[in-house]
Nucleic acid binder design. Sequence first.
DNA 1: CTGTTAGCGCTTTCAA
DNA 2: TTGAAAGCGCTAACAG
Lengths: 340, 340
Amino acid sequence: MSERARRPTVKEVAVRAGVSPMTVSRTLSGGLNVKPDVQQRVMEAVAELGYHRNENARSIRPGHSSGLIGVAITNIANPYYSTFALGVEEEAALTGRRILLGNTSEDAAREADLVGDFLGRRVDGLIVVPAGTTSAHLAHSQNQGVPVVLASRRIDGLAADSVVLADDDGAHRGTSSLLDRGHTRIGYLGNALSIFTGGRRYAGFVRALEERGLTVDPQLVATNQQTVDQAREATRTLLDAEHPPTAIFCANNRNAIGALKEISAQLGDGTRAPADFPEIVSFDDFELAELSPVPISVIDHDPRELGRTAARLLLDRLDGGERETPPRAIELPVSLRGVR
Amino acid sequence: MSERARRPTVKEVAVRAGVSPMTVSRTLSGGLNVKPDVQQRVMEAVAELGYHRNENARSIRPGHSSGLIGVAITNIANPYYSTFALGVEEEAALTGRRILLGNTSEDAAREADLVGDFLGRRVDGLIVVPAGTTSAHLAHSQNQGVPVVLASRRIDGLAADSVVLADDDGAHRGTSSLLDRGHTRIGYLGNALSIFTGGRRYAGFVRALEERGLTVDPQLVATNQQTVDQAREATRTLLDAEHPPTAIFCANNRNAIGALKEISAQLGDGTRAPADFPEIVSFDDFELAELSPVPISVIDHDPRELGRTAARLLLDRLDGGERETPPRAIELPVSLRGVR
DNA sequence: CTGTTAGCGCTTTCAA
DNA sequence: TTGAAAGCGCTAACAG
């Protein structure tokens, strides 16, 4: 590809500038105690050779860190998480740090692998949307002085900083708003109850019903949809039931979108009107919710801010005085918003 | 956070296992020429200490590489690019490599910074959705033996592998389909023509019109929308014109979504029917397109596959025999699909 | 089968 | 203001 397919080192820069490697190093770290004209020469050599300090070599020296933050996400392709990642990236970039990104596909074993790999790469810290409920790998990271921040989901028994949403409150308010509008048969579509958000949102849903003296009809509850297609399938089952719900609470955007797709498809045959279909409440806003053929409200929150907050918690531990403080558990508020 | 906030090294593992560092190293690299029982002891020490090889230290040794791929994307939060990133991540993970992710926000200077940083971290290669038309930083990367793959957009004058979409063909087919249905006043919403995809898609649009003896009406063309809100604004202008278009070609999902949002909002006042609004063709499929109040077709393609292809091109250079072959330019086909 | 030596690229410490 | 030495964690190459 080129005559010189090697990356220059301090030594080469030094030779070219006619100085010692130390002078190059000093110049590159601010130029303290280096004569201006020498600095000049060094910088020229750097430019001519296209030299970049080897950060990996630097990071193995005592005291130095890698400037890397490991981010383990369950599904990068979900706009919610990718926006989250953007928030992390932005905040990390402010401190000159970079993001090492890994996708866990909601698989705890993969997550553990990933964390091990991240530790091997000497990340300064970890931001994790945990896929499982085991925390050995994360506790291990902390034991080695690599702080962990949990985002969106917490893990019982792991003393780590965390940012989560007001899942219970949001689900409660969303469900209550449906009850206020007179609904009594309310369906529930969500991810597994064993997942932190799944369990909490379901709890809020149930609490709202029980406050009004209603009990949950198991026929109307489906809680294992991870993808839009699965959600759509579950919606079909709900709609085809003998007594279909008049409203559906969707615990996340995957499920809400699946529901809308199914409703829209069934409307397509022209035999029924939008009023024949349940109204929707979705935990998570999403693009084009306003095109819904049925009334929809969303429990809104800002994934980017979630990412920023997670990053700030971590950076506090790394750069701030928060080395040894007890874990902080932040719960970000959500807001209920009628979309149509 | 813990008593032992230090990361163990080979040496400590060696001491604990009662062997030399070399034996630890050998055991960890497959155990060739190490007695099984010694391996056993080493692995126990590794587990007890929670040891992870320092990849940064390994990577500075001659011949060894960092196992990192730098990915520079213009906007991670765009579902299109995050799905692209997923494709890259998946393919990279197959070779044990990780993704170093940076967001350029469509800013060429930031991209150059990012690339410099990536080189400093000794990435094995770079996958870039270029934000600008300058390529010095990328050529520089290649000169140092760090291959570059361009995705979605190419840069004139840079001899690098690339995967792009059949932009011209897709836009041509989409526009032609509108013409086939009798439209003659077709609006155009897109990103800047100076952006690779923007220019190519516009060219396909124009070509389709000209083939039918039509010329472009500048009043109906808006080409500087980067965000959904900007697209919505541009749509309003188009719809409010004296002779609004009867169809709109949207050059990407941001613009299509903005158009749908504006149309949906204007429908909300109840004074007009869907038939009063233009039909849409969108380059890029997107979630919930089928909820469109007006007929819509999409020019469909798979961003995940784009990511995978980009990664494969890069990995070929890294692991395969493709070190010195001339650049390969791949153009992925797209398909026109009526959504509603 | 195992250990010693040396050196990757860099920078802290010490000496000049 | 500059340089030489030493060592960060790791592992080829060479002994044994």
